[in-house]
Design a protein around this nucleic acid. Sequence first.
DNA 1: AGCCAAACTTGATTGATTCCAGAAAATCCG
DNA 2: CGGATTTTCTGGAATCAATCAAGTTTGGCT
Lengths: 142, 142
Amino acid sequence: MPTASEFEQMLRRASLRVTSPRMAVLSAVHEHPHADTDSIIGVVRDRLGTVSHQAVYDVLKALTTAGLLRRIEPPGSVARYEARVGDNHHHVVCRSCGVIADVDCAIGHAPCLTASDDHGFSIDEAEVVYWGTCPACKSATA
Amino acid sequence: MPTASEFEQMLRRASLRVTSPRMAVLSAVHEHPHADTDSIIGVVRDRLGTVSHQAVYDVLKALTTAGLLRRIEPPGSVARYEARVGDNHHHVVCRSCGVIADVDCAIGHAPCLTASDDHGFSIDEAEVVYWGTCPACKSATA
DNA sequence: AGCCAAACTTGATTGATTCCAGAAAATCCG
DNA sequence: CGGATTTTCTGGAATCAATCAAGTTTGGCT
């Protein structure tokens, strides 16, 4: 877990002003990977008191654009955010409870990046979502 | 393109009653792959006159559950439907205009199904979204 | 023909996300 | 330090896909 001053440096390096909502959001996402916006709002308010949901939405968008956060949108779920950026990793989603876990690419840096027929598209990224059942749900149904 | 009587058989085989909204939706999705719900409503109304959006939502859900349609939800887009089901194919999405094209799996039947660390999940499906630029947008910016 | 469950209609509601305009705060520069 | 400029934050309203609820119609079967 990065320290407060490291979060500050991340913001400054991205040419973003250092504000308490930004610090709180950044640290909240680091603490709760794959959290949805509403949970993040809750965590931020626990720490700072009153913060508008609009501010959190703005901050999340700014940090995502700056590359400090990554936005993921698993089908059937609202938008979620994670702090692990810059590497090519994917996600497993539990069909029954919806939890998400990180999965490193099995094949290499760009898995499945070579489509059999790309229809003339210039493909620059492949995003993989694995569907399955998490250990907790497996033992619950057993 | 299947004929009307083939659509009818598909519905009956799935134990679904044959109604004009269902026939119209089924054929609309066959004619317009990757269409969103709103476009489908438009096509259906062109053919049948007044149809409630609720009916279309219901039909789409019923047909998806029955396995006659597949629902896809590319991040940043609303839900879309396609009639190509039962095979393991993926999609390319254009970053600039949003068009979607089908892509057959390059590696085999279940690409990237072996994650390096599955965190104990039982993975049964891998869904791949390729991001890139479509030929039309490439030539537009050139 | 006539029943009954499934399907459709109308109309309202939810819930995530975005838009807007004014107030507040942070950075820059002298 | 202090003022001007720019960005951010606040609070409320608006949007849009999607869902819910209650009542009416219709397809499939006897």
